[in-house]
Amino acid sequence: MDRYVRWNALLELLTDSGRVSVEDAAAQLNVSQATIRRDFDQLAQQQMIIRTRGGAVANGVSYDLPLRYKTAKHSAEKQRIGAAAAALVAPGQVVGLNGGTTTTEVARALAVRPDLNTNAEGTQLTVVTNALNIANELLVRSQMKIVVAGGVVRPQSFELVGPLGGALLREVTLDLVLLGVNAIDVHLGAAAHHEGEAAMNSLMVGRAKRVVIIADSSKLGGHAFARICAIDRVETLVTDSGAPSSVIAEFEAAGVRVITA
Rank of each mutant, 00 (worst) to 15 (best):
R3T: 13
R3Q: 14
R6W: 10
W7N: 00
A9Y: 01
E12L: 07
S17P: 00
S17I: 09
A26I: 07
Q28I: 09
T35Q: 11
R38F: 12
L43F: 04
Q46T: 02
Q46E: 15
G55D: 05
A56D: 05
A56G: 06
G60T: 12
K70W: 01
T71D: 00
K73A: 09
A83W: 00
A84E: 03
A86N: 04
A86T: 05
L88H: 14
V89P: 08
V94P: 00
L97K: 08
L97D: 03
G99H: 13
G100D: 00
T102C: 06
T103H: 03
T104S: 10
E105M: 05
E105K: 00
V106K: 01
A107F: 12
A109S: 13
A111W: 03
P114K: 11
N117V: 02
E121K: 13
L125V: 08
L125N: 06
T126E: 03
V127A: 03
T129A: 04
N130S: 10
L132Q: 11
L132P: 01
N136W: 12
Q143F: 04
V147N: 04
V147H: 04
A149T: 06
G150K: 08
V152M: 14
P155G: 05
G165I: 03
A167D: 12
A167Y: 10
L169C: 10
V172F: 15
T173Q: 15
D175R: 00
G180V: 10
V181F: 09
N182S: 13
D185N: 13
L188I: 05
A191Q: 08
E197F: 12
A199E: 15
V205N: 03
A208T: 05
V212Q: 07
I213C: 08
D216H: 06
S217H: 15
G222Y: 00
I231Q: 11
D232E: 15
V234Y: 08
V247D: 02
I248K: 14
I248R: 14
E252R: 12
V256H: 08
R257A: 01
